[in-house]
Amino acid sequence: MKRKIVQAFSAIITNANIQGFLKGTIYKGKFKNICVPGLNCYSCPGALGSCPIGSLQAVLGSYKYKISFYVSGLILLFGGLLGRWICGWLCPFGLLQELLYKIPIKKVKLKGNLQKLRWIKYVVLAVFVIILPLFVTNIAGYGSPAFCKYICPAGTIEAALPLILADSSLLLGVGWLFFLKVSIALAVVISSMIIFRPFCRILCPLGAIYGWLNKISLYQMEIDTDLCTSCGRCQEQCKLDIEIYKNPTSAECIRCGECIPVCPTQAITSGIKFRKKPQSTEDKII
């Protein structure tokens, strides 16, 4: 419940330009200089900040730069501090998928070979966010924001649909690309009803970056090996089916914390901890 409140608060704060939804316009103020930590389309009428993945492609695709210190630095800062806690607690598109998952129909867990689908997001990051914007350029030297253009369902749901609803003249620009994107968005919406956060797990390039940073971020999940009995209750509770007692720094863990209260020995903790746990008395004697 506490997490849902934080997620809702984050979604509202990052999309607080309410009049944009009514007028079919977007916010053009100074906050757009800064990227928000989660995936949130900057063409969304409500968006106050910039999407880190959209901004990364914009700078990489610019004829002036080709390396983005500013946006990469912001993503590293967010991820270095919190890792995928951002996905679990701050990302508006993650919240949308979780709300869809609450629809009471049969659920499916991604197990066994299906878990390998997670590698797709790393390919999406490399190909659509980095390689295509960098190397496939137009005559003026600008690269195409390939992830936003061909894949991102957040852009379709948060930006394209509200803008078309507010200004039907935009329908004149609709073509095969729009139908491709609507199909992907529909697939994500429907699969979110039966699989927990499928976009975050399979396609999200931001989740791929934060997943790497989960290993070293200041915010960590930790297992007290003296207390853990490897009973597996944490994994049973985990909607992402992570063996948290074996791998608390898993790149897939969104730090939702649902495993913490179910641990019978309170072996799981989370937070920002700077110091090592003091050695037990036995260890010291040995």
Partner: peptide, 12 residues
């Protein structure tokens, strides 16, 4: 980039 509606980005 962020203060203009990027129609290409949203598939239009």
């Amino acid at each position: 980039k962020a203060i203009r509606i990027c129609l290409e980005c949203i598939g239009i």
